[in-house]
Amino acid sequence: MKDYNFTHLQELESEAIYILREVAAQFERPALLFSGGKDSIVLVHLSRKAFHPASIPFPLVHIDTGHNFEEAITFRDELVKKFNARLVVGSVQESIDTGRVVEEKGINASRNVLQTVTLLDTIEKFKFDAAIGGGRRDEEKARAKERFFSHRDEFGQWDPKNQRPELWNIFNGKKRMGEHFRVFPISNWTEMDVWQYILQENIELPSLYFTHEREVFFRDGIWLAKAPFMAMKPTEKAEKLHVRCRTVGDISCTGLVLSTADNLADIIQEIAATRVTERGGRYDDKRSDAAMEDRKKEGYF
């Protein structure tokens, strides 16, 4: 008999496409949360595949902390143009200006936590009933129990102890007015799967993911980028080094790794040999052992 083997990347892709089509079918106003990072870029690629030859039936939503890597914003705008997508921007600066949130002070100040309020305000303003995110269960222990279809109450909160069971490939997106869902089509992917898929599909990424020279400084075991809004301690000294991002987020909490990898194959070899998890370089997770679980309950990505 003929061999009907499916590779793990084909299976993960097929699963993600299935989820994206479920979102389009079950919700009235879905949106894709686009951070400019590789996971959300992969989601855009999967969405193009899911609805081909039609265009992506939902807008991309970017929650802009104002503390961005310039390259990420340029990349975002080009991608939106190329794929004829719609873009909605939620601004953290606006949330600060209107007094919805108060900027953190001090040496470790970050706008990462503030994003949650802007995100929830944006969801409410545009009446989005499903927000598709690039979260993966392998990223962090609180995410390991996240559902594909994750219910949020009218305050945007996640209740990890009272999640709906998810069986087979049947997804329950029923909700009351004002409630919404977070949907994670690449829940079952690991960092390695994402990179292998990017290689296999030849997906374009922002230059930040490849080696480049940048002024960086070292804090608590992590290299951070020097930027006008990044407060540095007197003992911290910026140096120009060859680095690349393993994840791309707000500058204040994105750790960089020393690397000379300038192509996907080299990055994959580097990751295969790396012994630190991807989020090990996320400054926001170091705040406490349950930092992610706490932020997620409040409505974080």
């Binding site: 083997n5 990347l9 292998q196 290689l199 296999q200 000379t260 080299d266 040999a273």
Partner: peptide
């Protein structure tokens, strides 16, 4: 850069894996 002997995945091998 080429793969070293202690690298766990070769790009090609990993692309063809099954999922259990």
């Amino acid at each position: 850069m080429t793969a070293t002997s202690d690298t766990k995945f070769s790009s090609k091998g990993y692309l063809g894996m099954q999922l259990l």
